[in-house]
Simulated assay, not measured.
Amino acid sequence: MRKPLMRLTFRQLQVFEAVCEARSYSRAADIMALTQPAVSLQVRQLEEVVGAPLFNYVNRTLYLTEAGEALRQTGRDLFARLGSLDMQLSNLRGALHGQLRLGVESSAQYLAPHLFSQFRSSHPQVDLALTVGNHARVLRRLTENREDVALMSGVPSGTDLEFLPLLDNAIVAVARPGHALAGRRGLSLRDLTTYPLLVREVGSGTRQACEDYLKQKRAHFAEQLEIGAFEAQREAVRAGLGLALLPRQAIRSDLAAGSLVELDVAELPLRRSWCVVQVRGKPLSPVAQAFVDYLRGQRSLINALGIALEPAAGAGPGVRPAAD
């Protein structure tokens, strides 16, 4: 190892990571409770140690150089190892202690707190850092070692990922109350295609699954409106902008309240599974391993949770019992 690298400090790496996250020296200074000159000084000292620039400015935007990318990955690895050491030392003292970094696909954000709450009842000293994003973002963060494990559906085949199916994820067609299709029985997917379909942004797992399924069923929607977030998509259906294909459990409160109506479509629900996902071959921290082991050993409890989260039959206009 080059001797200058021995002068690296964890504080410098913390400041550097804050700049990487914020893409701004001033915002990083706010995050770290430092002055902007202090942040700039720490980065300059790091560049002297590394012997190369860490950032480039292009059109007033901050970008990592190749050396910066390498340093950032090394910093993340170091912090992850230190976190794992802290957890291991806690285990030796007889208590599981540390933080679970959990990435959650946006349409599963209703489920994650319930799963973690069950786990934390047995391990009260474990904290949670939960990041919500679309399928592509959660997958990217997991492979970049920014999450310990992830909760998602539709795990890509041929990837270096291991997954454990947890719960059924039923995707259904929904509309606003009073829609022309609400209350009609025995609809087909093609009956829906004369109305606008509200879809998520590219990178959404639900969107990709639905597009593949609609193509398989030869149901082509002439008009599609792209909505960039799950909450906005749900609100757009309420506003009458069109129909949507959404996970039933994620909209259970809307169905129960009658603010959304599940349409009776013969080819639906489209069934997938929510899975807990980890990178194959990557050692998990004690906390993350305990979380995965807990989920693996509590399948009946998790299934009961899924049933409890389902809307009751007849809870709202047009709502029908879950298919067996």
Rank of each mutant, 00 (worst) to 15 (best):
residue 290 A to W: 11
residue 77 D to Y: 03
residue 79 F to Q: 03
residue 30 D to H: 08
residue 7 R to G: 03
residue 7 R to I: 04
residue 201 E to A: 15
residue 123 H to C: 08
residue 240 G to C: 09
residue 204 S to N: 10
residue 289 Q to E: 13
residue 198 L to W: 12
residue 239 A to S: 10
residue 76 R to N: 11
residue 183 G to F: 11
residue 263 L to Y: 11
residue 276 V to G: 02
residue 156 P to S: 09
residue 286 P to Q: 01
residue 18 A to P: 03
residue 81 R to M: 15
residue 304 A to M: 12
residue 141 R to T: 00
residue 228 G to T: 08
residue 243 L to Y: 12
residue 17 E to M: 02
residue 179 H to T: 02
residue 86 D to K: 09
residue 256 A to S: 14
residue 311 P to V: 00
residue 203 G to E: 14
residue 305 L to T: 04
residue 227 I to M: 15
residue 88 Q to P: 00
residue 300 S to Q: 14
residue 114 H to N: 14
residue 301 L to P: 03
residue 163 F to W: 10
residue 182 A to I: 05
residue 145 N to I: 00
residue 43 V to D: 15
residue 211 E to Q: 09
residue 125 Q to G: 00
residue 308 A to Y: 05
residue 52 A to V: 01
residue 216 Q to Y: 13
residue 249 Q to I: 04
residue 7 R to N: 12
residue 298 Q to G: 05
residue 46 L to G: 05
residue 316 G to D: 15
residue 30 D to C: 03
residue 130 L to R: 02
residue 180 A to W: 07
residue 185 R to T: 12
residue 89 L to V: 05
residue 11 R to S: 08
residue 53 P to Q: 04
residue 279 V to F: 07
residue 68 G to S: 07
residue 220 H to T: 04
residue 111 L to G: 03
residue 83 G to F: 11
residue 305 L to N: 06
residue 200 R to M: 12
residue 129 A to S: 09
residue 30 D to F: 07
residue 95 A to Q: 13
residue 179 H to S: 08
residue 253 S to Q: 12
residue 16 F to Q: 04
residue 34 L to C: 10
residue 131 T to Y: 09
residue 84 S to I: 00
residue 37 P to L: 09
residue 15 V to N: 12
residue 214 L to P: 07
residue 30 D to I: 02
residue 71 L to A: 03
residue 198 L to D: 12
residue 242 G to K: 12
residue 38 A to M: 10
residue 233 Q to K: 05
residue 112 A to H: 02
residue 288 A to C: 04
residue 144 E to I: 03
residue 103 G to M: 05
residue 107 S to Q: 06
residue 260 L to E: 14
residue 247 P to F: 07
residue 241 L to Y: 10
residue 228 G to L: 13
residue 179 H to I: 06
residue 208 Q to M: 07
residue 44 R to P: 11
